[in-house]
Nucleic acid binder design. Structure first.
Lengths: 331, 331
DNA sequence: GTCGAAAATGAGAACGTTCTCATTTTCAGC
DNA sequence: GCTGAAAATGAGAACGTTCTCATTTTCGAC
C-alpha cells in the first residue's frame, strides 16, 4: 500500500537507483533530479523503508538497552533514568534508535529477540548472564556492560567507582565523630554490592572500628523494607549512631524510620545514601549521598558501543567513573 | 558472515522453505525434519533474521513509545515509569519490542524515523503534534495518544480523569476546613493542565471560595522551582492555609519550603499533590495525593494499540481511567 | 496392494532497498 | 567542434526471509 521507491521512480522518470541515491546521498545526484524526485516522493507520500535498507546494508541503526536488576523493577529504578537519557541522546545524535527491555522479557523460544532483530549493538545494565553475552558476541553483535564487570576477552565494562564512594561515605561518618556505623546494604548485582561493602569494611578496618553483625543487614532496596528494617534496628539497645545505606531509597527509608521514632537527623542518627538520585533532595533533611555521574556513565557506555560498532577497538576495557561525596543535611 | 537459512538448508538437506517453516510454525513440519533442522541450526549458530522476515511479512513486531512533556526531561519523569513498564510488559507478552524516544529526537531530515523504521504502531505520550500524528496515520501506522486528547477521526486517547482528581483534592482540603486554597500548577500538556485547573476552580466556585491570583501560580514542575515559589508565597502576608499542587514533585517542594520556614505540615499548611508517584511516600510527612492508575493507563494504551494493529476497531476512542484521592500525612 | 485424503516438502517469486559496474551525459579547455 | 575526464544515471544482482502453488510422501481404510 505505501509507495515504494519504484513508484517514485516510475512517477518521476528516473531509475530506482537514482531515487535511492537522492535519499541516501543527495550530493551525488543532480539538482534537477533531486527536485523532481522529491516532488514525486511528496506527491506519492513516499517514505524510505528502513527495513529494506537495513536488510541490504546489514545495519539497522538500532541498539538495545537491557536492564536487569535483581528483584527490582527495571525501568522504575530511578538510578537508570539519567543513564538511559544519556544513552538516548548520544544515540540519537548518531542516528541510532533505542530499544529498551528488562531482562526477563527477552528470551523467546529460540535465540534472543535482539539477536534476531539484528541490533547493531547492545548495552547490558546490571546483572548480566555470561552465556547470553557470549551468544550475542558469537553473532558479532558488540556488547558493553554497564554497572557490572565480567572478565571476557574484549568486553568493555563501564562501572562507577563504588568502592571509593563507599570509602568516602564511611570516612565522612567517621570524621563526623561516629564510631559505630551500621550498614544497610541493598541487594544489587554482585559487583556493586561487593564493592560498596568492601569500601565500607575497609574504612572500619582502617580505624579499627568493629563490624557489628546485627547492624549490618542485607535487604531489598525498597522504601518500606528499609523503613521496617531501620525501625527494628533503632529499637535495639545500643544501636549505632550512623548508617551507611547503599542507595538513596534505602537511606530515605532509614531517615523516615528515625524521624518517626522521634530521633533527630542528623543529631541523633546520621545517614548517608548512595547514587544522588532524584529523591535525595526530596527528603527533608536532604540526603548526604555519594554522587555517581550517571550521565557520564551513559555517555561512556554509548560511545564505547559506537566505537565497537564502527569497528574501532574500545580504548579501554575497564572504565570506572569517579564518585563524589555530596554532603547535605543527614550528616 | 552469520549463517542464513540457506546454509542451514544446505547442511541438513531440506529446502529453505522447510527450514523457514521449522522456525516460524514448527507444527507444520515433521518431527524428523524439525530435529535435523534444529541440529544444523545449532551447529551453524543460526539465528533467524527478523529484518528479512519483517520485510516480507510487512510487520516488524516493534512499537514505539514517544514521550514529549513540555520543558521536562522525558524519561526522567517518574510519572511515566510505571506506564512504560506496563506497556513493556503488555508488549512483550504479545511478542513486540519497544522503542522509546523523546519527541525532539525523532525528526530527521525527511520523514519520521519511526515511520521509516516501520513501526507496527506508536504511542504518543504527553504533548503531541497533530501534523506528526497525521503523518503516521497517512502511512497506515496506528497511533494511540496517552495523557493527551486530540479530536481526530478514529484516534484513541487514554487519559486519566484529571478533572475529578483535582475536584477530589480540592474538596478534601475544603472538608479539612480550609477556606483559602492556593494552586501550584505545573506546566504540562494543555489538556492536563486545563483539566486539573478546572477541577480546582469548580470546587472554589461550588463553595464560593475566592480565586486569589497571587496564590495561583504556574511553574515548571521541578523541586527547586516549587520550593522557591512556595517560599516566596509563604512569606506573603495572609497566605492560604492549603495548597493544591498539580504533581508530587511540586508538592514535595512545597512541603519542604513550609518545613524550612518552621511551619508545621499539615497543621499550619496543608498540601496535596498529584500522581502518587514514587516520591510521594518518600517525603515526611507522606504526601496526600491523587493516585493515577498509571499501570492501567499503560495497559490500556498498549492493548488499544494492539487492537488497531490487528485491524480491530478500538472499542472506545476516549478512555478515561479514574483517579483516586489518597489521604496521607500532609493534610 | 490400492486408493485417496492429508501431511510434508520444494521451487521460486516476491518484499524494497543498496551497490557495483557499465553506460551516458555534461562540460572545461583548446 | 573535438577530446577526455568527471559527473550523473541505469541495469540488475544481491540481502534473507515468507508464502503460494505445485509435487511428493505418508498412511488409514478397505
Amino acid at each position: 500500500m505505501p509507495a515504494t521507491i519504484i513508484d517514485v521512480a516510475r512517477d518521476c522518470g528516473y531509475s530506482k537507483a537514482t531515487v535511492s541515491r537522492a535519499f541516501a546521498s543527495p550530493e551525488t545526484v543532480s539538482e534537477r533530479a533531486r527536485e523532481r524526485i522529491y516532488a514525486s516522493a511528496k506527491k506519492l507520500n513516499y517514505a524510505p523503508n528502513a527495513i529494506a535498507r537495513a536488510m541490504v546494508r546489514r545495519r539497522t541503526e538500532n541498539i538495545a538497552f537491557i536492564i536487569h536488576e535483581k528483584q527490582y523493577p527495571a525501568i522504575l529504578n530511578p538510578f537508570y533514568s539519567p543513564i538511559l537519557e544519556a544513552v538516548m541522546q548520544e544515540g540519537t545524535r548518531r542516528g541510532y534508535s533505542l530499544f529498551i527491555a528488562a531482562r526477563q522479557d527477552m528470551r523467546l523460544s529460540n535465540g534472543d529477540v535482539y539477536i534476531k532483530k539484528q541490533m547493531d549493538g547492545v548495552i547490558f545494565a546490571g546483572e548480566a548472564d555470561r552465556r547470553i553475552i557470549e551468544e550475542y558476541r558469537s553473532q558479532n553483535i558488540p556488547v558493553v556492560l554497564l554497572n557490572n564487570h565480567l572478565e571476557l576477552e574484549g568486553l568493555p565494562c563501564v562501572m562507577a567507582d563504588h568502592f571509593h564512594g563507599a570509602v568516602a561515605a564511611t570516612t565522612h561518618l567517621y570524621e563526623r565523630g561516629h564510631r559505630r556505623i551500621g550498614l544497610l546494604a541493598g541487594r544489587f548485582s554482585q559487583q556493586v554490592t561487593d564493592a560498596r561493602f568492601n569500601g565500607y569494611f575497609s574504612v572500619l578496618c582502617q580505624y579499627g572500628l568493629p563490624l557489628e553483625r546485627p547492624f549490618v543487614v542485607d535487604l531489598d532496596p525498597e522504601l518500606d523494607e528499609a523503613e521496617r528494617v531501620m525501625t527494628r534496628l533503632l529499637q535495639l539497645p545500643d544501636h549505632p549512631t550512623a548508617f551507611f545505606c547503599t542507595n538513596d531509597t534505602i537511606a530515605a527509608g532509614a531517615v523516615k524510620a528515625a524521624l518517626r521514632l522521634g530521633l533527630r537527623v542528623p543529631e541523633d542518627i546520621a545517614v548517608v545514601g548512595f547514587d544522588d538520585s532524584s529523591l535525595s533532595r526530596v527528603v527533608e533533611p536532604e540526603l548526604t549521598t555519594v554522587r555517581i555521574d550517571a550521565e557520564r556513565m551513559g555517555r561512556l557506555a554509548a560511545n564505547t558501543l559506537f566505537d565497537l560498532i564502527d569497528g574501532r577497538e574500545a580504548e579501554e576495557l575497564f572504565m570506572e567513573v569517579p564518585t563524589e561525596l555530596v554532603v547535605r543535611g543527614t550528616t
